[in-house]
Design a protein around this nucleic acid. Structure first.
Lengths: 352, 352
DNA sequence: TGATGGTGATTAATCGTTTAATCAAGCTAG
DNA sequence: CTAGCTTGATTAAACGATTAATCACCATCA
């Protein structure tokens, strides 16, 4: 039944060269004591035959598959491509493969997804939980990427500081009356971002929070956010926790004939693919996914290799750097007002 | 060095029950001839011990890893989450895992990505090429998801028919003067979509094609598409090959004070996550990723299992159904004109 | 009664690699 | 001249599952 695997094996190289399989293994791995001349001959033969070691046999012997699992509880997250790419890149740079597991938002399926990974014998798991999911102890090292205020997070972007960045930017443009747009107050990430924003509201300014999920439960799915009314009542800046919501706000304002950034500024988060492409281009805050991925993978691999030494790191791993700063990408949706808001006169700042 | 793998092995179950390992294996696999009573006892013991078979040992013996590779040459494609999710779902429903490999757009790295997968001993590969990349013969079955007009495509959405859908929709709303927006004429997918559109331009109507990549090479990256001018010259409908470009067009028009859909309609492709959320909600054409993934995976698994029988299917696999129809999602960016365009009077259709 | 056949289990080989233990020389030193 | 060390290679035992071949046993039938 089992068809003979294609490609040569260690043993085939060995017999072809009249040496033992162990010698070939050692030569290729650079271990043991082999004469330089023999190593060359073995290398040459291996190349010539196009030798590819059997990962199954190696895994069976060593106990390590050199494969990591990536659990994305919310795969529809538009940030996912960036994250997956960064994780895969960091992992493969260290010689590891990445097995994906989608849990389709449900917590029950998340456990199932983790089990699928365990059955495939992954050496460790990277998980990016959405909303505070409980992380159970699996028998392997685990890296969690969420938010700094999540108890067991390994590493993440500094969402709080990102929020401060946006608010400082808007305040510097003269804004005083803000609407902060979030989706779900249960999300640590969103709370951090909004918390950071609130912490930098200028003296005398005011900020109202709009939770979209609550709004939609009250007024129906995809119903207008009635932002024009907020502008009437004095709001001049809208800061959303995601470019998704910023885009929603921007198009709603534009559609209502409110000039952006002339009469209202809009800012988002995550710097999604299209953010720079729209008109006006969206001001956003970007997270350094590459660095975050690198730190997470490093911590994970460290634990995996330490595990070898009876250290038995079986829980959530931790890294030296636990939060990575975000950077503001100021574009065209934020600016000083060019039209009077309300009773007051135009705020400080040169006219556009 | 190699730390003892956690969890029980077949042999441990066997000795605990005073039977042979082979019996346990057969019982759990439902093969061979084992008394019902013994099967129950073995199952019970396996559960009790939390037995998880070693995939490495199994793979070594059987020659199959039950892992598939997924190659995404353009991971930044915003459609990626949907596709990855669908592929992973279809694969895991059949007991297969999915290893991702990103090739970061470069053809050279695509080959490297495929090699990484081969080194990991995947049983087969699903590849979604961007722009006509040459598919080399690897030693394993391969499923290609691209476009029906790509020579070796296994299965894909019927992009041509999708294009027809959009155009028929716009024509039914009374439009006659179209701007078709694409990015790169070298893409089979985009060409199919645009070709489908052109094939359904109503008699007497005209359609101009705007290739963004060419436009940007001439006028600079992220420069305005000057769509307002096109409206001045009589265009009333903009149909893009992607929601990304449709969004770009929509925001540019809105920003120029052109009412959508009052003075111009806009339609896109792919029904991305935010398409329904913006104002006005974007009309789009959706592909049935779940069905496409299912067909691709089935064809692949079929080839893999046939391979067992010395059939030796080593190239691109083919399926019975090679193209899956797309569906139109009509929303608010498309409609009849409510403002006069040019010298002519308002086209037929009831006023909004 | 002895040949035949079905049942329920065991034996043993095998997949390809790693690695600890061993061994045969050759060389140096006492 | 031999004990001891180094060098360069070999042996053999795992790792944990699958599976073809075998076997002991009992029942059936001629």
């Amino acid at each position: 039944m089992a068809n003979p695997r294609p490609g040569p094996t260690l043993t085939m190289i060995a017999t072809a060269l009249n040496v033992s399989a162990a010698t070939v293994s050692n030569a290729l791995a650079g271990k043991g004591r082999i004469s330089a001349e023999l190593i060359d001959r073995i290398r040459a033969k291996a190349d010539e035959l196009g030798y590819v070691p059997s990962s199954a046999a190696r895994a069976l012997r060593t106990g390590h598959t050199r494969v990591l699992g990536l659990v994305l509880p919310d795969i529809s997250n538009p940030l996912f491509p960036q994250i997956a790419q960064a994780i895969e890149y960091a992992a493969s740079a260290s010689g590891y493969g990445v097995l994906i597991a989608d849990s389709r938002g449900s917590v029950a399926m998340q456990t199932e997804a983790i089990n699928r990974l365990i059955e495939r014998d992954v050496d460790g798991i990277v998980i990016i939980p959405r909303l505070g999911t409980r992380i159970v102890d699996i028998g392997r090292p685990l890296a969690v990427i969420d938010s700094p205020s999540t108890p067991n997070s390994t590493v993440s972007a500094d969402h709080w500081q990102g929020g401060q960045l946006v608010m400082e930017h808007l305040a510097a443009l003269g804004h005083q009356n803000f609407v902060l747009i979030g989706n779900n107050p249960a999300s640590n990430v969103q709370n951090d971002r909004i918390g950071g924003m609130k912490s930098r509201v200028p003296a005398g300014g005011k900020a109202e929070i709009l939770w979209i999920e609550q709004h939609e439960q009250a007024h129906g799915k995809a119903s207008p956010l009635r932002l024009a009314e907020k502008v009437e009542r004095g709001a001049t800046a809208f800061a959303a926790v995601s470019d998704l919501h910023a885009l929603r706000a921007l198009t709603e304002l534009q559609n209502a004939g409110i000039a952006v950034p002339g009469r209202a500024s809009v800012a988002g988060f995550d710097d999604l693919a299209w953010s720079a492409m729209i008109t006006p281009a969206l001001t956003s805050v970007r997270m350094d996914v590459a660095t975050i991925a690198r730190i997470a993978i490093d911590a994970l691999l460290c634990a995996i290799e330490a595990d070898t030494a009876a250290d038995a790191t079986r829980g959530v791993v931790s890294a030296e750097t636990t939060s990575v700063p975000m950077t503001l990408v100021a574009r065209q949706t934020t600016g000083v007002l060019t039209a009077p808001t309300h009773p007051e006169k135009t705020p400080a700042g040169e006219p556009a």
